[in-house]
Design a protein around this nucleic acid. Structure first.
Length: 430
RNA sequence: GGAGGAUUCGCCUAGUGGCCUAUGGCGCUCGCCUGGAACGCGGGUUGGGGGCAACCCCUCAUGGGUUCAAAUCCCAUAUCCUCCGCCA
């Protein structure tokens, strides 16, 4: 949810942002109208409640002769309060609906346009020369690392088994990612992959992308598509200690995606699957720190890709391709020789205070007066949330096999992964 | 799955229909005292919302209900605890 105070101060900025995204700017006026209606309803209800309170208290003190009269007045007021409260509730629901319909305000500098209108910010590493590149599926099968046939047999399309070095590769990547994150000060977290509807709703994944989400109807639980959901929900309805910020978590969990709209895309292999494991970075920071933190998350993603010795580029995602809660998004796309193009491996979004407002996450900070003295009442301050992929395992494995394939059919192992792979420098078909 | 019990402002806690407009303690904080401290004394200390302001409204796990009036009575739900059952 966007900041209503900001909207009141500068509605045109929010309208401009909506246009930038290619979304309906009349939603902004609907929101302003809903807010006015709510204020009016609250004022009416407040006044009636105050009057009712006074009359109610006077009942027990009323003399026997005036008592029936007072009681009648009280009954009438009770009716009126009930009606006014119903209107207030309706106005508040309408406001929330209108509020949720407006996407986050896009950060200055985000490219105009849609999916293809990204701006490339950096291109890093040397694209490997591979004469006749094979796909990761073929390489994975030869190494007995990836078994998509049995994945399909057991679970259906877009499922897979990782076996042998494939399984070891996953553990190596997770270990490397977690080690890096912990060294950078992240709190490692193993997060639940099943969450309640409120959590899923609060993180915004039941909006336009609800068809992507698996739901367990019998238990009214959702399977997360990313541990961002659990990590954002972790501090929901909490007031954090402002001085403890930034709070950084590195969450590991399985991720589940229905891939409902992607029939025919990446049907082979493990680039696009219904289930994969992922290490996700999630940060809670003071609102004014968000932009800097976004750069830090991007830097950590790049550090990780560097350790994997991959050639990749960083793109600044265009406004029309941003999720509703992101004000800006950077993707890192690594080179896949067999496809002759870059494919997304990681993504980091700055959600500013949009997500935390929705999840009711704030911070309590010490407030100082103009002379720098502490004031007795601590202030409540807004918190920004940001997320970034550290390692989406299955896609990263696909990339590693493709990117580091050798003419003799073996696969080069980046130095950073070797400690977790028994020191192996290459993976060789059996 | 079954049977009980619990949930009050950071923590503990008083409170069984009407000055509860919520008690007391701890903690925190401001002030006084002091050369400076400790002790002591006094004040402040849940959030949210409306209003230019004075001030007002809501908030006793959540949602309903009864009543002129609910922390208090009734119903439902959630979470936690104990016991039983089942089970890694």
């Amino acid at each position: 949810m966007i900041d209503l105070k900001l909207l009141r101060d500068d509605p045109e900025a929010v309208r401009a942002s909506q246009r930038h995204r290619g979304e309906d700017e009349s939603l902004v006026d609907a929101l302003l109208g809903a807010d006015d209606a709510r204020r009016a309803a609250i004022t009416t209800a407040d006044n009636l409640r105050a009057e009712q309170k006074t009359v109610s208290r006077s009942v027990s003190q009323a003399s026997p002769e005036e008592r029936p009269h007072v009681l009648a007045k009280a009954r009438q007021l009770a009716e009126e309060v009930k009606a006014a409260e119903a209107e207030q509730t309706a106005a508040e629901v309408a406001l929330r609906t209108a509020h949720l319909a407006v996407s986050n305000v896009v950060e200055d500098g985000v490219p105009e346009g849609g999916e293809d209108d990204f701006v490339t910010l950096a291109t890093i590493g040397t694209i490997p020369e591979v004469a006749e590149p094979r796909e990761h599926t073929e390489i994975g099968a030869a190494l007995r690392a990836i078994d998509t046939e049995r994945g399909a047999k057991v679970s259906g399309s877009r499922f897979y088994f990782l076996t042998g070095v494939g399984a070891q590769l996953e553990l190596a990547l997770v270990n490397l990612a977690m080690e890096q994150a912990a060294a950078a000060g992240f709190i490692p977290v193993i997060a639940p992959a099943l969450v309640k509807p409120e959590t899923m709703e609060g993180t915004g994944f039941l909006g336009s992308h609800s068809s992507e989400v698996y739901r367990l109807a019998d238990d009214d639980l959702y399977l997360v598509g990313t541990s961002e959901v659990a990590l954002a929900g972790y501090h929901s309805d909490e007031i954090l200690d402002f001085d403890s910020l930034p709070l950084r978590y590195a969450g590991f969990s399985s991720c589940f995606r229905r891939e409902a709209g992607s029939h025919g895309k990446d049907t082979r292999g493990i680039i696009r699957v219904h289930w994969f494991d992922k290490v996700e970075m999630f940060a809670y920071v003071p609102a004014e720190e968000a932009k800097d933190e976004h750069q830090r998350l991007l830097a950590w993603e790049q550090e990780f890709l560097g350790k994997l010795e991959l050639a990749y580029r960083v793109i600044d995602v265009a406004a029309g391709d941003l999720g509703s809660s992101a004000s800006r998004k950077f993707d890192c796309e690594a080179w896949f020789p067999s496809q002759g193009r870059y494919r997304e491996l990681t993504s980091t979004s700055n959600c500013t205070t949009f997500q935390s407002r929705r999840l009711n996450i704030r911070a309590r900070g010490t407030v100082y007066d103009s002379e720098g003295r502490k004031l007795p009442s601590p202030g409540i301050l807004p918190v920004a949330t940001l997320n970034g992929t550290l390692c989406a395992v299955s896609r990263t494995i696909a990339c590693l096999l493709d990117h580091h394939q050798q003419p003799d059919g073996s696969v080069y192992v980046p130095k950073a992964l070797r400690p977790w792979l028994g020191g192996r420098e290459v993976l060789t078909p059996q």
